[in-house]
Structures are given as structure tokens and as C-alpha cells.
Write a protein that binds this DNA or RNA. Structure first.
Lengths: 248, 248
DNA sequence: ACCCGCGCGGTACGCAGTTCCATGATCACG
DNA sequence: CGTGATCATGGAACTGCGTACCGCGCGGGT
């Protein structure tokens, strides 16, 4: 059984290797799927059973990585969300560092083939989506925290890609990249403010404020005016998303 | 001459209309390019002369919009970068609002067709790239400002898309979207800190959430709460600039 | 030895996108 | 007004990706 699995993996690896060889020799667009299958000693049909498309063979570890990220994020407990997020993003970096030369060849390919660039963006977007959902749930899953969750997830992914590209270009070594990435994440952690800033972690005081005006916050009665009481401009801005939601 | 140009545009518009009609009738993947060309009364070859691909016809205004953004950004002078950036991003929003129903149909299409989602991401990435380059140059174009420029550009685009999606879903009207977007940009402006180093140290002290009793108030005396009465969400959005000014 | 399941390869097909060429309209010029 | 050049158009043929279908052979179980 384990032998069978191993053989499947070996076959898969042969296809990937054949593909990267041919891409290096004739370029991506100059290589047909049939040529890859021939060199790997499999049929064209089998290629498409292993990889959804010609592009997919360039990102062979994507699905597995995505699953690993999700697994790491789901182990988070209240209070450990930040470290979970940090480590999950490090998984991506580690994956690339582990792939080594192949990651760099992929970088070369993506730089010159538009279709592969698009495909890579789609991959990145999937990581980002996991992060976004995780952060959003962490912050309560309410509509008013969604934008900030999107911004935060985006910032993490952007920072990651910044460091990753430096390594892919050879500007920094693997260990430097790891350290730099931790620094960057720490910096983001400090500058983003995460929970504190404009958002409704303090839902209770918000409600009591609304109630103190005598207007039930759940009532969306038509034509009924809403009364809002704020202390200053800053509080208004903080409460705006909530106010908008309640008025909707 | 102008007549010839007009005829070309009319022909192009016929093709776009035919495409959207057929996509609505048979779905995107159920529609062949030949069918689009037939309905528009042109040859298949002509279709591919007007649009690089079947996907491109779904985003017919993209190139023009990209050029408009670049044009707006290049008019920036020292000191006017922020407003240039803000207005350039508003160009994108305005483009969608202007397209109206077609933008919403595109939204429906992109939600169900993976290829179109990828394509849209590619479009967004191009806007984001313009913003990134602009911000980076603005901040000196040195390597040490690049990451922050990437983060800033990303934040602008993410915020924009957040508001845009709300309009596309019909959650807010066009005017609300405009106002909301300006608010969001203003908020980003305040929290990102832009040029200064990575910090938001401002850390507004929001302690005394305790008792904000509804005291009617006309003056802007410090510590004194303000009472706002609005009829509905739309009125709130219309009045927001005024409210902000009074609270300042 | 026989049967069953299943992965594999081969074939055929649809369709996107490209290339090449013939045709017809428009325009410049004699 | 006729003639030739230019250029957009449409048609035809081709490549190659991706899918559907089918038959074969290599297991493993009884």
C-alpha cells in the first residue's frame, strides 16, 4: 500500500521534473503537454489526471500547502491567534525555501509568462483568503470588522511576498529571509494595532451607548429617526461601521 | 474620420452587448466566441482583433481606465500626491458606477466563473501596480520605502474593492458608495501614517465609555457629547461631512 | 483459475486563439 | 472618372489545451 503510494508519488515527481526540464529547454509556451507526458513516460491523459492544467504542474505543492495553512490556523485558541497567523504565514515561506532551486525556476517562469503570473496570483489569493477568514472570525465575524480583516490579511501576504521575492531574486539568503520576515511581521503587528483601533471588540459599551438614548438598536422601524450620541469625532469614526449596520 | 471612429465604436459596442446577452442566456462557458460574433454580425476573426480573448470582452473598459488612472497620477505635483491618489482611485469606482447594470452583470459572471475571477484579479493588480509605483516614487523610490509603498497601495485597492463590492451587491447606493469610499480613504490616511515611519502611535485614549448621557448640544465644547438625529442611513451618509466638520 | 475493480493509455471531440490569404470598401492620384 | 494602393474584414486551416469515452491489462480477492 505504502509502496503503491510511493510509486504514484514517484511518477508524479517524474512528470514535474520532466516539465521543468522542458520549460528550461524550450520555454513554457514552447512545450506541449504531450511532450511532458512523453518524457515522463506517461500518457497525456494521465498528466491531466495528476494536474488540472498545464499551469498547475508549475505549482505542484500548492494544494498541500494550502491544507497545511488551514490546519495550522484551525489549531488556534483564544489568545493564540497571532502566533497561529504568524506561523501559518511562515509555512508559505518555508515551503518556498524548501523547494529551493525549483522555486527559483518557477520565479523565472512566472516573470516571463503572463499566464503563470495570473496563476500565481490566484494561489496567493487563496492563502490570503484563508488569512482573511481566520482574522475575520477572530475579530467576531461581524460586517464592521471585515474591511479591517481584509486589510490585515492583505498586509501579511504583501509583506510575505516582499521578503519572498528578495530571496527568490537571491538578494538575501534563506536564514536572512526567515529573520527578516519575522521582523516584518512584528512590525506589522505593532503598526496595525490589530484589535485596538476602530472596531467593535468593545461591543458591550457600544450597545449601552445606543440604549442610553432610548432608542432600541434592533428596531429598524420605517421613518423612525435614529438618535446617535457620540463624545467626539474619534468616537464617531470608530462607531460608524456599527451605526451603518444598525441603520441598514 | 470621426464617423469612421464612431462606427468602429458602435461595432465594438454591438459585440460587447451581444456577448453579455449570450452570457446571460447560456452562461459564459456555454457561449462560444463564434456565437458572439454571429450575433454581433461580425466574423470570429474580427472579434479577436477587438478583444485579445473571450475573457477580455467582459472587461471592455479596462485599458481605457488604466490609462485614465495613469494620467491622473502623472498630474500630481509635490504636495498634491495624496489627492491625486485619492482621485485616481475614485476613477475606478466611478467607472463601475457609470457602467451600472453591466458592472453588476460582470460581478455575477465573475462570481461563478473561475477564469473571469482570475482575470479580474489581474486587472486589479494592474491598478495596484500603478498606485504602488506612484507611491514608491513619491516616497523617494528607494528600496527601504518599497515595502511600505506596497502595503499602502494594497490597502487603497483593498478598501476600494470592499466598498465597490458592497455597491455591486446592492448593499449601498451609488452616492452612499462614493461617500463611504471617501470616508474609508480618509480613515486609511489617518491610520497608515503615510510618509512617517511605521507607527500609528496616536493611540487615542478611549477609556471613559461609561456614561455618555444624551445631552443635547450645539456647541463643540470639549468632553461634551454630541447628539445626532438622522432619519435613515442615506441621510447619515449625506450629513457625514457636515457632522465631521462640526465635531472637529 | 476466474472475476472484479481500477488505473492507465488511446482516440475523438470542442473550442480558444493564431496565421494566412482572398475580397471588398475607401481613398489618393492621375 | 478610372485605376491602383491601403487596409479592415471574413473565411479557412491549424495548433494545442482540456474533456469524454472506451478498451485493455494488471492487480487482488475468493
Amino acid at each position: 500500500m505504502s509502496e503503491a503510494v510511493s510509486q504514484r508519488d514517484q511518477q508524479r515527481e517524474r512528470v514535474i521534473t520532466a516539465a521543468f526540464e522542458l520549460f528550461a529547454e524550450r520555454g513554457y509556451e514552447g512545450t506541449t503537454v504531450e511532450a511532458i507526458a512523453d518524457r515522463a513516460g506517461v500518457g497525456r491523459t494521465t498528466f491531466f489526471r495528476m494536474f488540472r492544467s498545464k499551469e498547475s504542474v508549475v505549482f505542484p505543492a500548492h494544494d498541500q500547502l494550502l491544507a497545511a495553512i488551514e490546519a495550522r490556523l484551525t489549531t488556534a485558541r483564544p489568545g493564540t491567534e497571532k502566533v497561529a497567523l504568524s506561523e501559518a504565514s511562515e509555512l508559505v515561506l518555508e515551503q518556498y525555501l524548501h523547494e529551493g532551486a525549483r522555486a527559483r525556476q518557477r520565479y523565472a517562469l512566472t516573470r516571463e509568462v503572463e499566464a503563470l503570473r495570473e496563476r500565481e496570483r490566484a494561489s496567493i489569493f487563496q492563502y490570503e483568503r484563508l488569512f482573511r477568514r481566520f482574522i475575520h472570525q477572530w475579530w467576531g465575524g461581524t460586517p464592521d470588522t471585515l474591511l479591517r480583516a481584509e486589510l490585515a490579511a492583505n498586509a501579511v501576504v504583501t509583506a510575505h511576498n516582499h521578503v519572498l521575492r528578495a530571496w527568490l531574486r537571491g538578494d538575501v539568503g534563506a536564514e536572512e529571509a526567515r529573520i527578516w520576515f519575522r521582523d516584518v511581521i512584528a512590525e506589522l503587528d505593532a503598526t496595525l494595532g490589530w484589535e485596538p483601533e476602530p472596531q467593535t471588540a468593545k461591543a458591550a459599551p457600544d450597545r449601552s451607548e445606543a440604549a442610553s438614548t432610548g432608542m432600541p438598536n434592533t428596531g429598524d422601524g420605517e421613518g423612525e429617526p435614529a438618535v446617535i450620541v457620540v463624545r467626539d469625532a474619534a468616537q464617531l469614526e470608530r462607531m460608524l461601521p456599527t451605526i451603518r449596520r444598525m441603520l441598514r
